[in-house]
């Protein structure tokens, strides 16, 4: 049912195809990219887009397309790992807060506090402690996304806790653990999937921002954010250096958002009577 509804939604399908292609390209970057990402060619610096270098070259003659493809790897890694981190922490917290009323004020106020914290301040602070790296980006973005997960999981738990099948399970002798893990969590999966599809593009942009500021992936490892940072100096002489990495981020996050919207429509029970 769900799958068919996504297949019938052309925008969601477009998003799915783009995301799939980008992910495969990131995973198989060594084979897909026309040049190694660190191959310097001093005879061809700052070349505009051409047949050989579709995205042009940078100030030391590196192929921008290849760097963008390798850069996707950082984007995808951060996107998936940070969301996984936020789910791993946020789901249990949300379950407990929603199920045990006495924990709710504590968890909810902590969530509010975390939401009030500016993302960049948190990231800069973490980078200062951990040192800038891909893992720093993952941790900073993951932590920043925990509150949203807690809220979704908490509200789902509150909703499901009052359902008849939960009452029936309790009357049948089910303990709290069974109710939480077998009855509430599986029924919250669709809401969590939607939350994740919103969070992943956010994380990808977050990675680009952190790398741009030098708090995430460090050169020479390519990342779309690093490429944008490199392009700053040459905006006049080589605008393609900024345009193509920027476009890549835009297309990827747009595709993820389209896919997320499609998933939300497909999984929303209120729409299921259509």
């Amino acid at each position: 049912m769900t799958v068919r509804r996504i297949l019938r939604n052309p925008l969601a399908m477009l998003g799915l195809v783009v995301v799939f292609v980008a992910t495969v390209a990131a995973l198989l970057a060594e084979f897909v990219a026309p040049f190694p990402f660190d191959q310097v060619n001093f005879s061809e610096p700052l070349r505009p887009p051409s047949g050989t270098h579709i995205f042009g070259t940078d100030s030391i003659g590196r192929d921008q397309l290849s760097r963008a493809i390798f850069g996707l790897r950082a984007s995808v890694t951060v996107g998936l790992l940070s969301v996984a981190l936020s789910l791993a922490v946020g789901v249990p917290l949300g379950l407990l807060a929603g199920f045990y009323g006495f924990l709710d004020p504590l968890v909810s106020r902590l969530t509010d506090t975390a939401l009030a914290f500016p993302f960049l301040v948190l990231a800069v602070g973490l980078a200062a402690i951990l040192g800038p790296s891909l893992s720093t980006a993952v941790i900073a973005i993951g932590i920043a996304q925990i509150p949203a997960v807690v809220r979704v999981m908490r509200s789902e738990t509150l909703r499901l806790r009052g359902m008849d099948f939960v009452a029936a399970a309790v009357a049948g002798g089910a303990g709290d653990a069974t109710v939480l893990l077998r009855h509430i969590l599986p029924n919250a999966v669709s809401a969590l999937i939607v939350q994740a599809t919103v969070a992943i593009p956010g994380a990808i942009i977050g990675e680009a921002v952190l790398s741009f500021l030098g708090l995430g992936v460090r050169p020479p490892t390519p990342s779309l954010g690093v490429m944008l940072a490199d392009a700053q100096t040459f905006v006049r002489d080589g605008p393609w250096m900024a345009v193509f990495p920027g476009l890549t981020i835009v297309v990827l996050t747009l595709a993820l958002n389209l896919l997320g919207d499609g998933l939300r429509d497909a999984l929303d029970p209120r729409e299921s009577r259509r």
Partner: peptide, 19 residues
């Protein structure tokens, strides 16, 4: 519960876990 005294409720439509 469920071992010595078991319950059946009114709403069969919503009393089973859908997943």
């Amino acid at each position: 519960r469920g071992r010595d005294i078991a319950y059946i409720f009114q709403e069969p439509m919503t009393s089973l876990n859908p997943v």
